[in-house]
């Protein structure tokens, strides 16, 4: 397998940030970029990244399994990670997690049957003043998520 030329260019840019003999430093970004292209990290993908960075495959696998934002299994088209930590929970009248569970008919760690959404429980994202918050596809932070705003967000994600 390989990644797209665009992804490889992004990885090369990351590699250039570190001393030449420290290519492994780019592994976190490289796995993120691979995941963005392919949706999740298969063993094959992790091996490709490891070989590309000339590092032991096991070390890349260790990184992929250590950090919470890597997906080690196939997921829906959109991953919604809801922060349920204490500061976000203090706004309990707006329980974004409960609302999404009910609306999508799935629990945390599950994917809707049409393969569109995966719902995940997240830890503090460092934006507690915006509670409740959720993260879409690891890249887009959504703040003050009232039921109305969640409906709007889902409608936007549903657009082709």
């Amino acid at each position: 397998m390989s990644l797209s030329a665009a992804s490889l260019a992004k990885i090369d840019r990351e590699v250039s940030k570190y001393p030449t003999e420290q290519k492994q430093s780019a592994v976190m970004s490289a796995l993120r970029i691979a995941q963005q292209e392919l949706g999740w990290l298969s063993n094959e993908t992790i091996q490709f990244v490891a070989d590309y960075l000339e590092m032991p495959r096991i070390a890349a696998y260790e990184v992929a399994t250590f950090y919470n934002m890597y997906r080690m299994h196939p997921v829906g088209k959109h991953c919604l990670t809801v922060c349920t930590n204490l500061p976000c929970r203090l706004t309990w009248e707006n329980d974004a997690g409960a609302y999404l569970k009910q609306k999508l008919g799935i629990g945390f760690g599950e994917t809707t049957s049409d393969g569109k959404y995966t719902l995940l429980e997240g830890e503090c994202m460092g934006v507690c003043g915006d509670a409740p918050v959720l993260l879409v596809n690891n890249h887009k932070m959504c703040s003050f998520m009232t039921p109305e705003k969640i409906d709007q967000m889902l409608a936007d994600l549903d657009k082709p």
């Binding site: 976190m28 919470n68 934002m69 830890e123």
Partner: peptide
């Protein structure tokens, strides 16, 4: 100076 992106580990 470079930015390094974390990936979810307190």
């Amino acid at each position: 100076l470079h930015a390094h992106h974390g990936f979810g580990a307190y």
